[in-house]
Design a protein around this nucleic acid. Structure first.
Length: 260
DNA sequence: ATGCCGGGCGAAGCCCGA
């Protein structure tokens, strides 16, 4: 089973590009972030025409996450538990079943958190507390589980073109990285790092300052696997070529292949 | 470079992202 994560930066502005990628990459499951539309405006028909089902948690203008899958999506949960006041559309979860197995997946759009001396950073760290709490519950199901998405976290200095420029950024602050370590230390595996030791492999390049041309990127889109999923991991890769397409997202897809 | 680009909203210019 091929499972991908892709921050699309507006599904409406990029529907043709996204569908082209779906046809080429043919993921069994795709976890989308930043769809930037309400659920009733999501282009379901276009995905259904390619044989996919959609589970969507939308929001006007900002955020928005979705699960796109060839098989049925069951036990869908919308929103990250732990804060009834938080109305950002940043988390959706569901179970995708084949005839022989099932995998639970979540599409995560973790808050950016900049500027790092404001309540936006506090919101990010608290959101990560909630994610850790929920991931602890899911881990204890002892299922194949993939927590995929735009984490807005640079895990290590090997995952950024120039770490000295990012030391005080909310994506690389020590508090942020500590939270990601807490999550991983529950027993999750960073699928990309399990398959690729090469440093400086990126998933995001800013639109500005020729970041793509200079390869000034960061690795912030991740697939975290429960032990039961990690045991079935075959490969994990970044579809870097998509960043060179016309009108690209600033993120590219990351995907893994599980023996499921 | 705490916004150079790009999308949403809505019809100019601000909010937001990383």
């Amino acid at each position: 089973m091929k499972i991908a994560t892709f921050n699309v930066n507006s599904i409406k502005a990029r529907i043709d590009t996204i569908l082209t990628w779906f046809k080429q990459a043919a993921p069994d499951v795709a976890l989308l972030q930043e769809i930037k539309c309400e659920a009733n405006a999501f282009p379901r028909l276009e995905f259904e025409a390619l044989g996919y089902n959609c589970a969507v948690l939308g929001q006007k203008s900002y955020n928005g996450v979705a699960i796109i899958a060839k098989n049925r999506i069951e036990d869908v949960r919308e929103g990250l538990p732990g804060d009834d006041v938080d109305d950002h559309a940043r988390y959706i979860e569901g179970v995708v079943s084949t005839e022989t197995a099932a995998v639970r997946v979540a599409s995560i759009y973790l808050p950016n958190g900049n500027p790092a001396d404001t309540d936006k950073f506090t919101y990010k760290l608290k959101w990560m507390d909630r994610l850790i709490a929920h991931a602890t519950e899911l881990r204890d199901y002892e299922e194949a589980l993939v927590l995929g998405g735009d984490y807005n976290v640079i895990p290590t200095a090997h995952d950024v073109f120039d770490p000295t420029l990012w030391t005080n950024d909310a994506l690389f602050r020590i508090e942020t990285r500590r939270q990601l370590r807490r999550l991983i230390n529950l027993g999750f595996t960073d699928a990309f790092r399990a398959c690729n030791a090469e440093p400086h492999q990126y998933t995001f390049w800013d639109y500005q300052a020729g970041a793509w041309q200079k390869n000034n990127g960061i690795r912030i889109d991740h697939l975290l696997l429960s032990p039961q999923a990690a045991d079935r991991l075959k490969t994990c890769a970044v579809d870097k070529h998509v960043r060179a397409w016309e009108k690209p997202s600033d993120h590219v897809p990351v995907w893994c292949e599980l023996e499921i």
